[in-house]
Design a protein around this nucleic acid. Structure first.
Lengths: 102, 102
DNA sequence: TTCATGTCTTGATGAGCATCAAAACAGTCG
DNA sequence: CGACTGTTTTGATGCTCATCAAGACATGAA
């Protein structure tokens, strides 16, 4: 956030992603998905880790999906979600441009 | 977000910061402060760059201040705001731990 | 087809937030 | 002190969001 000033349009787009990240449940969902075996997890596993109801988890997953942070595909009975590659890196870059991949 | 699963407490703390970033006006304020001469800007300069009213800018600056992202000090008539060093880096680290300073 | 399971959508409710106008506070200058 | 500028606080309003209960949809099995 030290480079040139942010344009209005870019600020709106970035704010949308940050809004998706601005909830403890969604952060933990994202974390659980990333930490899961093979980088993916089905909704049943995710729901088990929280005290909130199934529909609420589904709602949060939808928010993350619409923000471009995760994507899911149905495999038989279950739906598996995984992180969209590079999505979080792009957000990280926007915050601190002077960083490079390890 | 690929390491160990996030604790509930850490998720709540992180979400608080993301919530502060989840507004286009606040993102642009942060950007303008970072891009300003000497890394600091007075409220009058910031207000001039927006269409919203003065009190609204003041409100957003307060949110950023309470999130630990900026700090301000009065210097005569004007109050100057600047970014808290390392605050954004910490957020960036939380998102993508596998990055190192350039 | 009928049933059971997993996931999502709908509808409703209560809490939180962005915004502004008006008032209050802080500091400078005459 | 009094007038003025810069900044914040207060109060009110409309909107968005998180959550749940109930129902709907999708898939696989009997």
């Amino acid at each position: 956030m030290t480079g040139a000033a942010l344009s209005e349009a870019r600020a709106v787009a970035l704010a949308r992603v940050f809004k998706a990240l601005a909830d403890p449940v969604r952060l933990r969902l994202l974390s659980m998905i990333g930490a899961a075996e093979g980088g993916q997890a089905c909704v049943c596993e995710l729901t088990a880790g929280f005290e909130v109801s199934g529909p609420t988890i589904s709602h949060h997953l939808k928010v993350l999906r619409e923000a471009g942070l995760i994507e899911g595909d149905r495999r038989g009975t279950w739906i598996y979600y995984r992180a969209v590659p590079g999505a979080l890196d792009a957000v990280s870059d926007a915050l601190v441009p002077n960083r490079v991949p390890a």
